[in-house]
Amino acid sequence: MGLIARIVEHAGISTICIVSLKPIAEQIRPPRTLHLAWPFGHPLGEPGNRVQQLAVLHAALQALATAQPGQILEPGWRWRREQYTLPEGWG
């Protein structure tokens, strides 16, 4: 995914990758990365947990607008141990 993101970035479109394996992201070096240390296959969170999934999407979109190229952002959320709130207007 990171290799594709670099090609898309080269065409002038900003990208962000949501990953659960930081060592892979460090090797591939996507343009911008949101790292969540969650189980593989759950990049947006728990199935059916709408608030958690929207929080991840909000963090990814915010990072897309603010992160520097090559940056790996880590919000520090723990799997199934956080209380998530929807950003204002995401209701």
Rank of each mutant, 00 (worst) to 15 (best):
16 I>Y: 00
40 F>V: 15
59 A>V: 04
42 H>V: 06
20 S>W: 04
83 Q>R: 15
4 I>G: 00
55 A>R: 02
25 A>K: 02
23 P>V: 02
54 L>C: 10
71 Q>A: 15
6 R>G: 00
47 P>C: 09
53 Q>R: 15
54 L>S: 09
35 H>A: 13
72 I>C: 08
78 R>N: 14
71 Q>P: 07
78 R>E: 15
21 L>S: 10
17 C>H: 03
1 M>L: 10
15 T>L: 02
83 Q>W: 03
76 G>A: 09
70 G>W: 04
70 G>V: 03
12 G>C: 05
30 P>T: 05
62 Q>I: 07
89 G>T: 14
3 L>A: 08
44 L>C: 09
54 L>I: 12
52 Q>V: 01
75 P>V: 02
59 A>S: 13
7 I>H: 03
23 P>Y: 01
24 I>L: 14
28 I>L: 03
63 A>S: 15
86 L>P: 08
11 A>P: 01
47 P>S: 12
40 F>P: 09
85 T>C: 09
10 H>Q: 13
79 W>D: 08
27 Q>I: 11
19 V>Q: 03
20 S>A: 11
27 Q>K: 13
52 Q>K: 06
82 E>K: 00
74 E>W: 06
15 T>E: 03
87 P>W: 08
65 A>P: 00
70 G>T: 04
88 E>Y: 07
84 Y>I: 03
57 L>M: 13
58 H>M: 07
88 E>I: 10
5 A>Q: 01
57 L>C: 11
63 A>C: 15
27 Q>P: 07
26 E>V: 05
60 A>G: 09
43 P>K: 02
4 I>W: 09
66 T>V: 12
83 Q>N: 12
70 G>E: 06
58 H>A: 15
17 C>G: 04
43 P>F: 04
44 L>A: 14
73 L>D: 07
88 E>F: 05
90 W>S: 11
76 G>L: 10
79 W>I: 07
46 E>H: 12
17 C>Y: 00
80 R>D: 14
74 E>M: 04
23 P>W: 00
78 R>K: 15
85 T>S: 15
32 R>K: 14
72 I>M: 09
14 S>F: 01
19 V>M: 01
73 L>Q: 13
59 A>G: 06
45 G>M: 04
5 A>G: 01
78 R>Q: 15
19 V>Y: 05
20 S>M: 10
83 Q>C: 10
91 G>C: 10
81 R>T: 11
58 H>S: 13
68 Q>W: 08
47 P>F: 11
41 G>M: 05
85 T>W: 06
48 G>H: 06
49 N>A: 14
26 E>P: 01
55 A>T: 08
45 G>V: 03
69 P>V: 07
35 H>E: 07
46 E>Y: 11
12 G>Q: 04
40 F>A: 15
